[in-house]
């Protein structure tokens, strides 16, 4: 279910129902340079799941992922508390891909950095379908464009 308030893409805050898988934190920035290619990042996440740093299956609690020009936010389903807040300027990239288990679910790998760009983290979420993953990418891309134009 996608609910976006506001009309123009600039102040859209689109919300998507997702599940949280886990995070790989404190990656050295130059280590993460090796994770630029999508397949490298997918293999890295796969390896992290194999050696237990990331679960294979997300928690079963539905959460709300909010994407806007301010950034990406993860809130509980009742939106009473915000669990993750990723300011847009610290979001490096987002990668969406099929989880390969045949259920059509997609994984979202959000790479963020810190203000000094010394370390990176990979936040992994799961959404219900590739269509939903595509819309999340569209809104994030529009948010980057909007920040770029209004950033100067």
């Amino acid at each position: 279910s996608t609910k976006s308030s506001g009309n123009s893409a600039s102040d859209t805050c689109a919300e998507f129902r997702v599940k949280y898988v886990g995070v790989i934190e404190k990656l050295q920035f130059d280590m993460s340079r090796t994770l630029q290619e999508p397949l490298d990042l997918i293999n890295y996440i796969d390896a992290a799941q194999q050696d237990g740093r990331l679960p294979f299956v997300p928690g079963d609690e539905d959460m709300i992922l909010g994407v806007s020009k301010y950034g990406v936010k993860l809130a509980s389903a009742d939106q009473c508390d915000v669990l993750h807040r990723h300011p847009l300027y610290l979001v490096v990239r987002m990668l969406c891909y099929d989880d390969g288990l045949g259920s059509g679910k997609n994984l979202l790998a959000l790479k963020t950095t810190d203000t000094k760009q010394e370390e990176c983290s990979i936040w992994v979420y799961q959404c219900g379908s590739s269509e939903q993953a595509q819309s999340i990418c569209k809104v994030l891309s529009a948010s980057f464009d909007c920040a770029l134009t209004s950033g100067k």
Partner: peptide
């Protein structure tokens, strides 16, 4: 096994990083 679409959205601020 990841045959289907892989979509990447990059923040222009970090292009190439």
């Amino acid at each position: 096994i990841y045959k289907s679409a892989v979509t990447t959205v990059v923040n222009p601020k970090y292009e190439g990083k």
